[in-house]
Design a protein around this nucleic acid. Sequence first.
DNA 1: CGCGAGATTGAATCGTCTCAACCGTAGTGG
DNA 2: CCACTACGGTTGAGACGATTCAATCTCGCG
Lengths: 225, 225
Amino acid sequence: MKTLQLTSSDRAILACSRFFGRLPHATVEAILEGATLSSHEEHDVLFRQGDSIDDVFFVISGLVRLYRLGKEGREADVAVFPKGEMFAENAMFLGRATASAEAAEASIILRLDGRKLRQFAAVDPEVAQALIEHLCHRGKMTEDLLAEDRLLTAPQRVASYILSHCPNGSTSFSFRLPFQKNVLAGKLGLAPEALSRAFSTLRLSGVSVKGRLIEIRDRQALERF
Amino acid sequence: MKTLQLTSSDRAILACSRFFGRLPHATVEAILEGATLSSHEEHDVLFRQGDSIDDVFFVISGLVRLYRLGKEGREADVAVFPKGEMFAENAMFLGRATASAEAAEASIILRLDGRKLRQFAAVDPEVAQALIEHLCHRGKMTEDLLAEDRLLTAPQRVASYILSHCPNGSTSFSFRLPFQKNVLAGKLGLAPEALSRAFSTLRLSGVSVKGRLIEIRDRQALERF
DNA sequence: CGCGAGATTGAATCGTCTCAACCGTAGTGG
DNA sequence: CCACTACGGTTGAGACGATTCAATCTCGCG
């Protein structure tokens, strides 16, 4: 872990994020005051389940995995945050972290003072509003994962993930996985082997996978799956 | 469905709820203005996944099941709300309901005007604050379900549910299920048969089940499970 | 070229679902 | 009062899906 200075390109990322994007520059600057920026290597732990942290985190670059611990070192991802996402707002209001967080690849993380953000939220309705919408969005994401876990098989979950990256209206398309298959497996609640097998199943439905590159021949076929 | 009048005992329930409990009486009254109260029978649908509703719901009595629809009529519960819980705040901010809701038993439901609540939240920081904490709590609940689904077997999930009803510090205790086993199965993401089998497994660890009455002989044994 | 990490494949096992049969209790109607 | 039924719950057998562990493959990199 290394401490860094906030650059102007970092601010650009904040500016297009769901949360900060809605707020006026002055407010953003005020919230950012005293925030610390640090770089982390893959597998660096940002905080642990049960820690009483009073910070909010923001992914400037890289990827963060939020997970719960089970018996015998088992881990279950509850969310994965790419560049531009804010997380751990829950811990700020609940008092303790309900999950652990670690960098899923080399990442740069901005750490805001939770107390200050709470104070802003309590005073500035615009901040509160942004926070509310952020929380609604996060809630939906988690709900999505839960519902997919309960309703879909592994190949269906992968198909659903692929379709969520499909520009709507196109019948054939391709894209690059934004992270390792390992991470995708975790996000979808699968063992890496299960993800692998799901991809081979989908190959029969016109999905080809070369490294991180995914190509889809027939969108309809996937939707029917 | 039948329209009703808000009684004083209904107001008492609102007053001890997580959300309304934090707000001054005057604010509560103002938010409640124009709200409608209705009674519903088991299986009455309150809204459907995809509906563009602009209301917030509150369970005055009874039980509401929030679920997503899958292929071939499959359903997956994403939350179950007992008396005193508010739900569908997400839909209010997201525009559309991400899940369907139905009464899991005969229920009385209060329906608030979402637009009005949003306006209050935008003006009154106290309301915004209460909403934020409510959303954090909901988020944690969903995360709990997701993590349990991914980390625990059926008997472990049931054990965890039982323990969550255990007055801390007691080694032996008993309680009544607040709803049908059917509903519990849904909440835990299990087929009713799987719940049944989980209970028989736990019987060997000192859990006895007679109808809705659950008795636990040895709390430690459950925790070890 | 050879190493190593990520990814894939295979085989065995485990856990849950499904479908069907059955049980017990609470109503219902003769 | 006693069948009859309806419903929630339980039990059994079989199928299915995912995990686990081990072996193998692939590709990027020293």
